[in-house]
Amino acid sequence: MALLELDGLTKRYGGLTAVNGVTMRVEAGEVRAVIGPNGAGKTSLFHLITGVVPASAGDVRFEGRSLTRLSSYQRCQAGLSRTFQLTSLFPEMTARENCRLSAQARLARRWQPYGGQAVFGEASTRGDEALERLGLTAVAGRPAGLLSHGDQRLLEVAMALAQRPRVLLLDEPTQGLSVEETLTAVETLAGLFAGGRLTVLLVEHDMEVVFRLAQKITVMHRGSVIADDVPSVVKEDAAVQAAYLGGYA
């Protein structure tokens, strides 16, 4: 049984079908990328998986359990942690506080209305560990809003990681980064993914990034899946070439 299964997932906005019957299986320990040109439905697919928007049809199953009836925060509680295409942080809090608040969400006493040494202590431990894994320890004390754009992107990943997610969903982690920043970010992420302990689903349109990071690739075009395989096969696929890669390989 795959960890995360999408079954005929569909989203229609009036006459437009943004996501059209997507079926996909993400195995535990797998790093899978969803690629496709702008408007292919990648981010919409993310919204459907995380429950930000309701699906028109189809089902999302996580560890064999249907998530369809769960709201977005409940899906997160179940173990799906995500980042956003446009960086979404708590700008006035330090990087450390950002991660602490994120980790706190997974603790049973996260709502405790008094004291909190134990809750904050455990959340800080998890948060600091995530910061370290993304190489952000040096900037941990700075307000998130003052970090460089590259560090902000990585901080968002650290926040998701601090939740110790079952599946990590990254929406274009290198969005808006310069060439050098992208290189740094990709190497950091590759180091993070090495070892196969994380299950990752990432949306990306930078081909270099995808081929460096992903073990499996799902290609979307106009809302539908047109290819689903290992990178070397996807690169050679004629339909993919025509739809998207434009002779990249």
Binding site: T50, V52, S72, Y73, Q74, C76, Q77, S81, R82, F84, S88, L89, F90, P91, E92, M93, E97, R100, L101, S102, Q104, A105, R106, L107, R109, R110, W111, Q112, P113, G116, V119, F120, A123, M159, Q163
Partner: peptide, 20 residues
Amino acid sequence: PFGAVLRGIRENEAKTLSLG
């Protein structure tokens, strides 16, 4: 901890929701 969540809502409610 409750107060920390309130601060999260103040700064970025959508993100706070997405954290669970």
